[in-house]
Design a protein around this nucleic acid. Structure first.
Lengths: 224, 224
DNA sequence: TATTTTCTGTGTACGGTAGACACGGTTTGA
DNA sequence: TCAAACCGTGTCTACCGTACACAGAAAATA
């Protein structure tokens, strides 16, 4: 994949007919399809049809489908929140919540960001904002690893969210379904599920993990 | 997808010719392809050809490709390590390391486990083992969320590993590539990367995040 | 042993995908 | 005026997952 595709300016040439579409229009149409019907429903044919053109016309704007998906991710992520100046813990909490909001609004982003891929301006912007709020005393590697850990947690939660629903932990429901007949083989899981059910089933896995990570980070920061 | 596909026994009927293949053979062939060339290279045609059969014969063993992928994941995960009896911190560390080893050996597992999907016996077994080592004083929801947070961290690290390589943090390399021309827009990222380079580039993002999560968990456990 | 039943693996077919390529029409600079 | 550049389209190939019918093989039954 052309890594600089997300970075270079359009630089429209002068000759020839003016393009009828823009990259943003195409990406938006694709995002709309993915939001409504999942990433699998996004095909060149479908995106072009929704825009009223043929699929081959899209190749005038995009080298291929991989670049379309990358553009979709950039479009879905959007501008990161400005958290610089806040206390590190409050800032990172706001950052993680904003990222979670962006991710659960586009459940397909999880699938679209697996594996090695080019990093776009927005994605790097999110990292930049998180790094800015981190306090002194951490090495560069530690700062980057902190952001990666937080982002990983958000991704994990967003990946469990039911498509189009709240960021509920569907994993437990899936487990409960499978465990109905095999509870004897997994006593610890059965006990945990029973305990959750006994306590009303309310569970905020996102906040729990986030607080643990931030607590651990606080231990490190205070030791410096 | 048939959720009970991974759980039911083969239950071979008596009449008719004996099957020439087994589910394990098919899954192993698919895993071998995915390990070598990625999940995208796994097609019914390719798997069947590697086994010396036609693609349609696979449908005698599997309802469809989704089930093949699920079987691949179960095969790749394997049996979880027995960590019960260890101290919780040592046990979880061993558990996370074992899971990381299983994941980096099969980078495609990241891609194959996104979104809602059936949970297999092995996957549930990993959760069971982690839950068993957790100390008293945590609610069922907290125990499940802890395991999910740890698993999410492992997945994040494994997802950044270059296919076929070590669990290095390729994200930073990708960032450095993109930042070469845009360092001015991302000063905090530039500073962190420069600091990493100045310190030899050694970075163990997995251990860093794991220690932070476990530190945070320790804070919670000691407060009970 | 002869027949029937049932299962296996295969061949064919269909609709879908991404993408290569050539072509006609349009727009603009020389 | 004219030629170069560019846009959108139609056609084509290769591949994907999978539905379906079919011939042959094996085991249970008569």
């Amino acid at each position: 994949m052309t890594a600089d595709f997300l970075w270079r300016e359009p630089a429209r040439p002068s000759r020839g007919p003016k393009p009828a579409l823009t990259l943003e229009q195409i990406a938006d149409a694709a995002v709309a399809i993915a939001d409504a019907e999942g990433l699998a429903a996004v095909s060149m044919q479908r995106v072009a049809a929704d825009l009223g053109y043929t699929k081959m016309s899209l190749y005038r704007y995009l080298p291929g489908k991989a670049e379309l998906v990358a553009a979709m991710v950039e479009r879905a992520l959007g501008e990161p929140p400005a958290i610089a100046g806040q206390a590190w813990r409050a800032g990172l909490t706001a950052w993680a919540n904003a990222l979670l909001t962006a991710c659960v609004g586009h459940p397909w982003a999880q699938e679209a960001t697996t594996g090695s891929r080019p990093v776009g301006p927005h994605e790097l912007g999110w990292t930049e904002q998180a790094l800015r709020v981190l306090p002194e005393g951490l090495t560069g590697a530690e700062r980057m690893d902190t952001v990666a850990t937080l982002a990983g947690h958000v991704r994990m939660i967003a990946g469990q969210a039911s498509p189009g629903g709240e960021p509920e932990v569907e994993l437990e429901a899936s487990m409960a379904r499978a465990m109905a007949e095999h509870a004897d083989r997994y006593p610890a899981v059965a006990e945990a599920i029973a305990d959750i059910a006994a306590n009303g089933g309310a569970d905020d896995a996102f906040s729990f993990g986030l607080e643990r990570i931030l607590d651990g980070l606080e231990v490190l920061i205070r030791s410096r």
